[in-house]
Write a protein that binds this DNA or RNA. Structure first.
Length: 264
DNA sequence: ATGGTTGTTTAACAA
């Protein structure tokens, strides 16, 4: 069966339950992975999301910042909340979907403005997060069917940013971040499912700043949101796209949903 | 070179 997976940094789930319903209506995904839900667990809009059709919810939230949630039409099992860098800051939740596929939903630290770990604690945290993930994934054995999605806050390719040259010293596209991202990807043999479908030579973005007057006209985007699969699932990937229409919705998130269809 | 916007929570802070 075709399994449709969406990952979306929603930038506050309470501010955009209506847009979540719009997304469900337009794309009818089997599973939706949200980041930056910005709400603690007991204030999560469980009932409203159940009414939209997603009664199975794995939520890892905190007050005001970060937070991830995985929503499903079918039951989710084996929910695990992971903490990294000695913080309890709600950036990673794992579940099992479609019987035997382990799905990891991540929100990697943005990293602040100054791309120097000696001057900026947030950037140091981002690099440490990648290092801990890399070590952990290199030790994970035994399960061939895995998917990792989320706002990884790195645009790795030159075609993942509006100007490679102008963003070399901008957090999200600096060489040290791209190296950390690549090491984490290699640590578990991950395959970039979106670039498996859309050629790496094509420009592709999933985030456009709120600060542009006209985001589509200026088109100064970055591809920060990703879907990775293990090699065993590479052949199952049938389609992938960025649903940039959602960036035009009223009171939109600054991120667009990323969609991947798999034959599971 | 600078400033531009949004959400959460109430003057910043994070993105």
């Amino acid at each position: 069966m075709t399994f449709r997976l969406v990952t979306w940094n929603i930038n506050s789930v309470r501010a955009r339950v209506g847009l979540l319903a719009q997304l469900a209506q337009a794309l009818n995904p089997d599973v939706i992975c949200l980041q930056e839900i910005k709400v603690e667990n007991d204030k999560f809009p469980t009932d409203a999301i159940t009414e939209i059709g997603y009664g199975h919810q794995a939520v890892f939230g905190m007050k005001a910042y970060h937070g991830v949630a995985t929503l499903s039409k079918q039951p989710l099992t084996k929910e695990v909340r992971h903490n990294w860098c000695g913080k309890d800051d709600a950036r990673h939740i794992a579940v099992t979907v479609a019987g035997n596929v382990e799905l990891h939903n991540l929100y990697i630290p943005a990293g602040g403005d100054v791309p120097d770990p000696a001057l900026n604690d947030k950037f140091a945290h981002k690099l440490q997060f990648f290092e801990e993930q890399t070590a952990w994934w290199s030790e994970q054995k035994g399960r061939s069917r895995r998917i990792l999605v989320g706002d990884l806050n790195v645009a790795p390719l030159e075609t993942d940013v509006w100007s490679h040259k102008q963003l070399l010293k901008v957090v999200s596209h600096t060489p040290i971040e791209v190296e950390h991202y690549a090491r984490m990807e290699a640590a578990h043999g991950w395959v970039d499912a979106v670039r498996h479908v859309i050629p790496p030579a094509d420009t592709l973005y999933s985030w456009w700043s709120y600060r542009a007057r006209d985001w589509r006209a200026s088109n100064k985007g970055r591809r920060l949101d990703h879907v990775w699969v293990t090699p065993a699932l590479k052949g199952a990937v049938k389609d992938a796209f960025v649903y940039d229409e959602a960036r035009d919705w009223e009171k939109a998130s600054d991120h667009a949903p990323v969609v991947v269809d798999l034959d599971l």
